[in-house]
Design a protein around this nucleic acid. Sequence first.
RNA 1: GCCGUUGUGGCUCAGUGGUAGAGCACUUCCUUGGUAAGGAAGAGGUCAUGAGUUCAAUUCUCAUCAACGGCUCCA
Length: 643
Amino acid sequence: MINITLPDGSVRQYESGITAMGIAKSISEGLARKVLAAKVNGEVWDASRPVTADATLKLLTWDDTDGKSTFWHSSAHLMAEAVESLFPGVKFWVGPALDKGFYYDMDLGDRKLSEEDLVALEKKMAELAKQNNNYVRAEMPKAEAIAYFEEKGDEYKLDLLQNLEDGKITFYSQGGFTDLCRGPHIPNTGFIKAMKLTNIAGAYWKGDEKNKQLTRVYGVSFPNQKELDEYLLMLEEAKKRDHRKLGKELGIYTMDDEVGPGLALWMPNGTIIIEELERLAKETEQAAGYKRVVTPHIAKESLYLTSGHLPYYQDSMYPAMEMDGTKYYLKAMNCPHHHKIFAAEPKSYKDMPLRLAEYGTCYRYEQSGELFGLMRVRCLHMNDAHIYCTKEQFAEEFKAVNEMYLKYFKIFGVEKFVMRLSLHDPAKLGQKYIDEPALWKETEEMVRKVLIETGTPFIEVPDEAAFYGPKIDVQIWSIIGREFTLATNQVDFAQGRRFKLEFTNKDNAPETPLIIHRAPLGTHERFIGFLLEHYAGKFPVWLAPLQVKVLPISDKFIPYSNEVKGKLLKAGIRVEVDERSEKIGKKIREAELSRVPYMLVIGEKEMNEGHLSVRRQGKGDTGSQAVDEFIAMIVEEFAERKA
RNA sequence: GCCGUUGUGGCUCAGUGGUAGAGCACUUCCUUGGUAAGGAAGAGGUCAUGAGUUCAAUUCUCAUCAACGGCUCCA
């Protein structure tokens, strides 16, 4: 007999060799019908795998993250079975579960998949699912597995096998399909009741663009049709919040073929948001002891040779233009210019830390396939600043920058974020990273220490640092689940020396400053793209391009409406009057759709009483208010940047 | 950059081997109406661009450009 400890702490005794499914059945038949897999001693197992020793066990259902991912992994196998039956001779690479769904990479030879093929595959999957085929696990010695795939001529699976230890090679079969697979899987295909193949894409084998491109088919599946329908509905809703759609609808920005891809044109409404963000940044930075600078958009080649950017990032810069025999580049970053400002006058330790800030315009030649609405563009406006400080000041400065992030996040209501500490890869010193092993170690340790001391939650990611030092990227998620690397905070121990930046220390000796690169609000492009999705276009008053729309009931009230508008304008509020001879219902509808935060309905009663009928976007009529009272309220809401 | 899909008035989208249509938006007129679409008339498109096939191309073929979904990349 063995002891099985369940999540509630209870211990049950079973015969050795009992399966998770057997245990589920001993608890209740209903539960057994829902069990997809089990977590045994923390490892996810097939529900049909025998347990032969004491263990802790958690039954996994659709309600568990691990249950879902097992379900989707099994769905990927089901899809592969369908693909194999429709397109014999196909070779498979890998087919994992995703956060939402699954994919399978396959080599279809010369065959191209079409949308119709996906429909046919879905039909086949549904048919195969109904057969209730069990997912059967089998172990095989490595040599036998190699022989099996050599015979099949499957170079992909042979490649996978190379990295697997002998004795642990497992295969899974369901119906007529067998695949090399670590598992685990759900009990049988019958659990998969609803599936949708969402798209076809090319994907390089092993993610390397030098390798052959395989066909990747994405899909998602559910244990019932209702959840699939809900999911599809959710996708529709997400589309409505897409910043590209909202950006167009609300007149925020536009792109034009003749201007060029990735070059956003900011329309009047978008420009108001930009200016509000800059006002916030300038206020915040001034209070934090920053000084503003302005620098040109281009510089000579030699500047980027000095900074070291050119050899590392030439491919991502616009090609040079030549003038009088000298090459000039559009700047892809502001730091070299700022370093030259630091260097322009002799510095003493008394000048440190020196914080130079600029909303700098940068140009980056992103690959054409990378461009994506406002999120990846070729011209960007960065909330940039460089802090030059001594080693002793570093921790405090770095901390202050982190605090600035948090202050901003609070204003914008960003609750979910992750700080990623990006480290260098020692193997790539001298190539991707500046060859200073000791400095890398030292600065990485300094950053880690600050993060730990301030209790900032963070994750470490190797091989993602900047070439001049470790960095912290802040990742956030828009409401529709899109992931953003927004803010960045980087340590730079290299450029100070490359530019021969110095200050005179207390001992009257020259010393090279450490530099912190930071951009808490990222770029206007990416940040406003995020905000559009975050607020679904319903900006808070302080950011709203138009804050108040005055809606006269009829033409008779236009003069009084304009009086009200005048008072609001005087109070610094962005306001317009809808003077069209339309019915009030239509004016309200259009004002609501344009997402203006406040609508003021003015008719006979309001005019006589000096009042306004106030309507809040999305909330409807909020009652009558005296004009001065309303102005005082909205001015306060604006000034305090209320959410 | 690579794979795939798409490209018709400002927007959303029909449609056809014989040079185009709807709704919304726009303009004008009528209407002056109390909390999410009042009515009528009108204007607006060389069907992304270039080449080819054809008596004839927006429709078929190819190329280019751009957008979209991925991959790779992202100081």
